[in-house]
Design a protein around this nucleic acid. Sequence first.
DNA 1: TTAGGCCTGCAC
DNA 2: GTGCAGGCCTAA
Length: 279
Amino acid sequence: MPELPEVEAVRRTLIGTVDGRQIEGVKVLRRDYFRRMAFPAEQLLGHTLRTIGRHGKRLFWQFDADVCMVSHLGMSGRITLRMPGDACLPHTHLIIVLAGGIHLHFSDPRRFGGVWLYNRGTDAVAEHVQGRMGVDALSLREADLITWSQKATCLKAELLNQKTVAGLGNIYIDEALWMAQLHPLQSVQRLGPESRARLVACIGQVLRASLDRGGTTLRDYRDAKANRGGFAESLAVYGKAGQPCRRCGTKLRGLVVAQRSTVVCPKCQARRKRGEHAN
DNA sequence: TTAGGCCTGCAC
DNA sequence: GTGCAGGCCTAA
């Protein structure tokens, strides 16, 4: 399940190979994979890919003449670099052929992902990010969470909300909360500045550690060159309910928070009693 | 603010 | 055969 580190790993395996190349072919196998088509995808033909940026879990493909494509991998999406004649993965919805015989395959069995096309003249990044995504999780600072004092939600629900912080998903939220020794059901409102700062530091630490290992591969995830990520073996809590906590040995507990499976150490992440402020 | 729908593959 | 996994969007 691609979250920020996996999407960034895909971006890094694409950059240097695809940028600066002209599009020589576009094959749309599923038109409804496009969430927005400001123009028919085939009109990408002839445009040159300038660069690929990222905000949260989305990639921003900047072409010349201000044309832009946004892609989101959803749960099961993959972007794969292939050569002519290579077989398609199952559920390939879009193929882009770049100069030099480089084929980009966009596949996504569950189709929770998607692609958006923005016209020339629109500031696609601003338009796409505006009202949809908050600050990118890698540049999160404690000051970005200042509005938390007015919110009635719990930590995990708030961190899942991409409008608050963009890029975090179920895995890294559980990992960061465990590292920061905070309970996912802890009220956001009653989180003191010290805890907020610790949380922000832990989010950055977990994301960077995962990036160093090329992300987390549980089953499906691969980068654009089909490499697996190596962070799964470093996970402390995600998917480990019933196993002993790495820090204190207490049995990790599974629960459901904000409709997501969640794992906590009941001792390290003890919930605060009412009225007792976390620092 | 919460619940449901989207969709497929896999574990049971 | 059933149910679950999940991000994100829409509707109640």
